[in-house]
Structures are given as structure tokens and as C-alpha cells.
Simulated assay, not measured.
Amino acid sequence: MKKYILLALTLTLVGCGSNSDGSSKSTYSSCKITQSNAILASNRDNDLKQCWNASGNGYESQGDALQWCEKTVNNYLSNKYLVTHSVTYAVESTYCPK
């Protein structure tokens, strides 16, 4: 009986640390563009659809998450556009929407 109660308590505590999408509330799991200054509206719309999930369990450090996000966004911009523009990005504890 004690093992069952301990198992139930453990499952309850683990569940409290998760977001509804299964990501951990204590890590940064995704990076997304939140604002774009592209000249063309179609490019701005496309930029705002960009979101990337972190590999593994995400980043515990906000600084590490922001470094990864900046690198990911810069790679996207340089691969997508000949002349880049400025964007704003953010890291979140949830995964990208599907």
C-alpha cells in the first residue's frame, strides 16, 4: 500500500511541473519570432509563423535559451532573405503550436 501511495504522489508532482502540451514549466522549450520589420507584408506574415522547438528537454537557463534562439533566428533570416531585416523573438516554456 505504501508503494502505491508513493507512486501516485510522484506522478502527481511530475504532472504539476508540466504544461498542457507536455513541456516542462521549468525549462525554455521553444523560440519564436514575435515581431517582424520586413518591408513586404507576406514576409512579415511568414516570419511570424516561425517557431522552433529546443532539442531534448529544453534549456533551464534563460540566457542559454536566448543564445540558442538568437542563433536559430539569425540562421533562418540569412537562409531566407538576401537582405535581412530586424525581428523580435522570444523563448517560451511551451512547445510550438502544431
Rank of each mutant, 00 (worst) to 15 (best):
I39S: 14
W52M: 09
C69Q: 06
N74L: 13
N43Q: 15
S26W: 06
R44H: 11
T10S: 07
H85M: 05
L77H: 05
K80N: 09
E70G: 14
S61N: 10
S36E: 03
V83M: 15
L48I: 05
T84L: 08
S93M: 08
Y76I: 11
V14H: 08
L77S: 02
L82C: 02
N37V: 02
V73R: 12
S30D: 09
N37E: 10
C31F: 05
D21M: 01
D47M: 03
G58K: 14
Y76R: 11
M1D: 09
C51Q: 04
S23E: 10
N43I: 12
Y28K: 04
L48W: 02
A38G: 00
M1W: 08
A38R: 02
E60F: 00
L82Q: 12
G63S: 10
T84Y: 06
L7Q: 06
S86T: 02
T27Y: 04
N57D: 10
A54W: 01
V91I: 08
K32H: 01
N43W: 07
L7V: 07
Y81V: 12
L48R: 06
S61M: 04
E70R: 11
N37M: 04
N75G: 11
T10D: 08
C51P: 08
Y4V: 15
N57L: 11
N53E: 11
I33P: 09
S78N: 10
N37T: 04
A65I: 02
R44E: 13
C51F: 01
D45V: 04
T12E: 10
N43D: 15
M1C: 10
V14M: 12
D47G: 03
C31S: 09
V87F: 03
L11H: 10
I39R: 13
T88D: 12
C96V: 00
C16K: 07
Q62H: 00
D21S: 01
C31W: 00
K49R: 05
N79R: 11
S30P: 04
S93Y: 06
L7S: 10
A41D: 15
G22K: 02
T94N: 08
A54K: 06
S42M: 05
W68G: 05
L40M: 13
S18N: 14
S24V: 00
W52C: 04
H85Q: 03
D47S: 07
H85A: 02
A65C: 09
